[in-house]
Lab assay of single mutants.
Amino acid sequence: GLPEGWEMRFTVDGIPYFVDHNRRTTTYIDPRTG
């Protein structure tokens, strides 16, 4: 799974992105792969 505090969501286009609730940021880069 994802690191603690992270969540995976999808855009309206079906593109996955990642929400970091710890820092309240979003990124398209998987936190597991950097």
Rank of each mutant, 00 (worst) to 15 (best):
15 I>F: 08
17 Y>D: 05
11 T>F: 01
1 G>Q: 14
6 W>L: 04
24 R>S: 13
10 F>Q: 05
19 V>P: 04
34 G>R: 08
30 D>F: 00
25 T>R: 11
30 D>H: 02
3 P>Q: 03
26 T>R: 09
26 T>N: 08
20 D>Y: 04
28 Y>P: 12
13 D>S: 11
21 H>T: 11
11 T>A: 05
17 Y>H: 03
17 Y>T: 05
30 D>Y: 01
1 G>L: 13
9 R>E: 05
27 T>E: 07
1 G>N: 13
33 T>W: 12
13 D>L: 10
34 G>M: 13
22 N>A: 12
34 G>F: 14
1 G>D: 14
8 M>Q: 09
9 R>G: 06
21 H>S: 10
27 T>F: 03
18 F>L: 01
34 G>Q: 14
19 V>G: 01
12 V>L: 12
15 I>R: 10
2 L>E: 01
26 T>A: 09
4 E>W: 10
33 T>E: 12
29 I>T: 10
18 F>S: 00
23 R>Y: 08
14 G>V: 00
4 E>L: 12
17 Y>R: 03
1 G>K: 14
25 T>P: 00
21 H>E: 08
32 R>S: 08
8 M>H: 02
9 R>A: 08
3 P>E: 04
9 R>F: 14
11 T>S: 09
19 V>L: 09
10 F>E: 03
5 G>N: 08
25 T>E: 15
14 G>F: 02
17 Y>W: 01
22 N>L: 14
3 P>F: 04
15 I>W: 11
6 W>E: 01
32 R>G: 05
25 T>I: 15
1 G>A: 15
3 P>G: 05
17 Y>I: 11
20 D>S: 07
3 P>N: 04
1 G>P: 15
26 T>Q: 12
18 F>T: 00
3 P>R: 05
30 D>L: 00
25 T>Q: 10
25 T>Y: 14
34 G>V: 14
15 I>N: 07
6 W>P: 01
9 R>Y: 10
19 V>W: 07
30 D>Q: 00
9 R>D: 04
25 T>D: 08
26 T>W: 15
12 V>S: 14
20 D>G: 01
30 D>R: 00
29 I>G: 03
5 G>V: 02
18 F>A: 00
31 P>T: 02
7 E>L: 03
8 M>W: 01
15 I>A: 06
18 F>D: 01
23 R>H: 14
23 R>G: 15
27 T>G: 07
25 T>K: 15
23 R>A: 13
9 R>S: 05
14 G>R: 06
27 T>I: 11
33 T>G: 12
28 Y>M: 15
29 I>W: 12
16 P>E: 06
32 R>V: 09
31 P>A: 01
14 G>D: 08
26 T>L: 14
22 N>F: 10
